[in-house]
Design a protein around this nucleic acid. Structure first.
Length: 779
DNA sequence: AGCACGCCGACT
DNA sequence: GTCGGCGTGCTC
């Protein structure tokens, strides 16, 4: 008797281990590790999805009665041995469930839907999910009384795209079927169908409502069937081919080193415009020629056609693109393209690190310092860690690229853990670094404007007169739209969270960005009953209005969360700006990343300060990275660029080092600060987040957890907190956090697992504990 | 999670 | 006496 070890899709501490199932003899030949199965689970034998992770010959523990696998969902494994191994490795650091790790590697469509079928004695049945709440209650009672029986359903969502086609089983019957004269549309469809030449017709192409068609289906006059069609669009058509460019000496040195050795990962540190991408393209090409594959990670936000087209231009249809804008179906299609070996280069955001490529030659993580490489929901993995594991498994190269590497990465390069490769020259030698000017807003408040200094305004005018373009960046934080009472200053807060609601003009509602609470805009002030409710626009909106007032002739494009909500809006704005249909692009952080507009000669930062003083030890690093990045948008071609940074803190080192464009100096100063305060990269960090509806309980439990950690860790570990989170309450839960800073703690992993175990106790039912290793966001 | 088992209160 | 409330514990 052969037995399979299965990880079931029940994400809980108690079920986070393999369960053994008997393999029915007819499956024995077919089943393999990494395949999906449906298995009966629990006393009701409800069907759940599971992943086969291994086999054993004989039941080790003969005291349990093994059940059999119900259904095999795959003909070949959806997870490779490497991926099963990755899930094991991942679990040591993400404090999540194994099934969650495994599911992170699969396209969503391969995860099953669960439902149950209620069957009556007369043979009729109905799906549980289609019942109303009241019907569910009455049905549950009927089940108890034995009037209904339950059959569990689990259905793989996997779908190839289909389209509905209509056919007529019996034309005579249709002809004879009488339809009342009043029912004009039905009559119309009847005669249309009688005259139909084709055997089948796409329902979509019929100009009849689904109501009408349904009537014909119900009377068995027509049949509807689904036919598979392909979903992959031809996105490669209008991209021109492109071939390798000649590398300068620095680029070439980097290229040679990367292809020569795989001893350790590389840090490719190159200033903006130094041609990192060309090095990536050529190293990838090198490995493709060796018959290997490549993964290229790019931050989600810069996964624009501008970037992806460069890869498509070079590698054609060998490229698979994975980003969050794709539908589940499109993601699945890209996944299959990779799995089948049709795509050998995967370009994508964070989760693309799990792409099922075989024979991996090189992994590149561009903009390595971006925090979006860390997933901020469970499983909280960092793409860089996964990349290290995969590179190890395949003996592949790993290249981390950035103009401003994270301190962690740069420190590793200094210690020789990574090999540092520097690109100090701009690839286009004519291009020179932009000149950066810091504007001290304390002395520059202009009389005509609250947001613009006199010097910036003058400069903008000057550029527009020369027909050159301008990018203006506004740090978004704290600048979202809201409503306020002009009489008493009352702002509407979320009932569930300690934060004010954000105004959404498109839906005319007030929304909470944390819990999703939505309410209408009050007519009168809920506090003082005055009618003077005023709308306050977002920072960008306000700045746009101000700009238009001062410079009515300037054509301004605004790019922020409000103007990019719809699909492709992002690209349309950039395209317009690229075609010089506007003079000024005004936006939030999102305009800082990876855009390349040769005609832009001025970059203005309206408020460099927001973000600088956040209660986060990485605040300076973030600000410096952002400012350096946005500065790089100026003057990328032969025209000299200028950067104006408005600030109230002109002597803050992050600002001063941006002016000097001196990463090295910034690195030195920041490292000193990190060392003094025992922060990364000198120390590792783990955050424990404790949440409960009752603030008292949240406090008490977090102290218990801190105590437990203290007992298990050495004296060298530093435990900060518990302290309330900056936004102490969201979703009606109070949040307290503990931060552990440590260097070597053998017992840490087991102590943290103990903390998780604690959550399972019954008196901790409503307690939520999240463990985040190397957290990226503290606010 | 979801289901059964089991131990107490308010009903025919 | 029993129906059903949901606390507790287990899932191959």
């Amino acid at each position: 008797m052969k037995i399979a070890k299965v990880i079931v899709d029940v994400p809980l501490m108690q079920t986070d281990k393999p369960f053994s199932y008997v393999i029915p003899s007819e499956m024995e030949e077919l089943i393999d590790r990494g395949m999906r199965v449906h298995v009966p689970f629990g006393s009701g034998n409800r069907l759940v999805q599971g992943i086969v992770i291994g086999f054993e010959d004989e039941a080790l523990d003969s005291s349990v009665n093994l059940k059999g696998i119900s259904e095999l969902l795959d003909v070949e494994p959806v997870l490779t041995d490497e991926q099963l191994w990755l899930a094991d490795e991942m679990r040591h650091s993400v404090f999540s469930y194994k099934i969650s790790c495994l599911k992170a590697m699969l396209p969503n469509l391969l995860n099953s839907n669960y439902d149950k079928l209620l069957k009556a004695a007369d043979g009729t049945s109905v799906k549980w999910s289609q019942l109303t709440e009241a019907e569910k209650i009455s049905s549950a009672k009927a089940v108890r009384l034995g009037q209904l029986s339950v059959e569990y359903l689990a259905k793989s969502k996997e779908n190839r795209k289909t389209e509905k086609f209509l056919s007529i089983p019996d034309i005579e019957k249709l002809a004879e079927f009488e339809i009342e004269k009043r029912a004009k549309k039905r009559l119309e469809l009847k005669y249309f169908l009688l005259r139909l030449q084709e055997e089948k017709i796409a329902v979509k192409s019929l100009n009849f409502s689904s109501q009408i068609i349904k009537f014909f289906v119900e009377h068995d006059l027509v049949k509807i069937e689904e036919v598979e069609i392909s979903r992959t669009k031809e996105k490669f058509e209008d991209v021109e081919n492109d071939s390798a460019k000649i590398l300068n000496s620095e680029q070439n040195a980097a290229y040679e080193k990367i292809i020569a050795s795989s001893d350790k990962p590389f840090l490719l540190e190159g200033i903006t415009g130094s041609g990192k991408t060309e090095v990536y393209l050529q190293t990838i090409d090198h490995f493709l020629k060796l018959g290997k594959t490549a993964i290229m990670l790019v931050p989600e936000i810069s996964l624009t056609p501008q970037i992806t087209n460069r890869f498509i231009a070079r590698f054609g249809d060998k490229v698979a693109i994975m980003h969050s804008g794709l539908s589940d179906g499109e993601k699945y299609d890209e996944w299959r393209k990779i799995k089948s070996g049709k795509a050998q280069v995967v370009v994508g955001a964070r989760s693309a690190i799990f792409a099922p490529v075989e024979n991996l030659g090189i992994i590149i993580i561009d903009e390595e310092h971006e925090t979006s490489y860390k997933q901020d929901s469970s499983p909280r993995y960092h793409a860089r860690d996964i990349a290290l594991l995969r590179a190890k498994w395949h003996g592949a190269r790993l290249v981390l690229g950035s103009a401003t590497p994270s301190l962690e990465t740069r420190a590793r390069a200094m210690r020789g853990v990574y090999e540092l490769l520097l690109l100090t020259k701009r690839a286009n030698e004519a291009a020179i670094l932009p000149e950066i000017k810091i504007i001290d807003m304390r002395s520059e408040i202009s009389d005509q404007s609250a947001n613009f200094s006199h010097s910036l305004l003058t400069k903008i005018k000057e550029k527009i007169d020369k027909d050159e373009q301008v990018i203006l960046m506004l740090n978004r934080r704290g600048y979202s739209s809201f409503v306020m009472c002009r009489e008493c200053g009352f702002v509407v807060d979320c009932p569930n969270c300690d934060i004010s609601l954000t105004l959404h003009m498109d839906t005319r509602t007030l929304n909470c960005h944390y819990c999703g609470h939505v309410e209408g805009i009050p007519q009168t002030c809920p506090n003082c009953h005055s009618r003077k409710i005023r709308y306050y626009g977002s920072g960008t909106q306000k700045v746009e209005e101000e700009l238009q007032e001062i410079m009515p002739e300037a054509r301004v494009l605004r790019m922020d969360v409000d103007t990019t909500r719809t699909k492709n809006a992002h690209e349309k704005i950039l395209e317009k700006f690229g075609n010089h249909e506007a003079d000024i692009l005004l936006g939030t952080q999102m305009i800082a990343k990876g855009l390349d507009f040769p005609n832009v000669t001025l970059v203005g930062v309206i408020n460099a300060d927001t973000g600088l003083n956040l209660p986060d030890f990485r605040a300076s690093e973030r600000s410096f990275e952002l400012l350096m990045q946005v500065a790089g948008r100026a003057g990328r071609a032969d025209k000299k660029g200028e950067v104006f940074i408005q600030t109230f803190n002109p002597h803050h080192y992050a600002i001063e080092m941006t002016k000097a464009q001196d990463y090295e100096k910034f690195y030195e100063m920041e490292m000193r600060f990190r060392r003094e305060l025992s922060y990364p990269p000198y120390y590792f960090t783990v955050q424990v987040l404790v949440s409960h509806q009752d603030e008292e309980v949240a406090i008490q439990k977090s102290y218990e957890i801190a105590q437990l950690l203290k007992q298990n860790l050495t004296e060298k570990a530093k435990i900060l907190g518990p302290t309330a989170r900056p936004i102490a309450r969201t979703h009606n839960l109070y949040h307290y956090q503990i931060l552990v800073k440590y260097r070597f703690e053998e017992e840490l992993e087991s102590a943290l697992n103990q903390v998780l175990e604690l959550t399972q106790l019954r008196d901790n039912k409503n307690l939520r504990v999240l463990i985040d290793s190397e957290p990226q966001n503290f606010v």
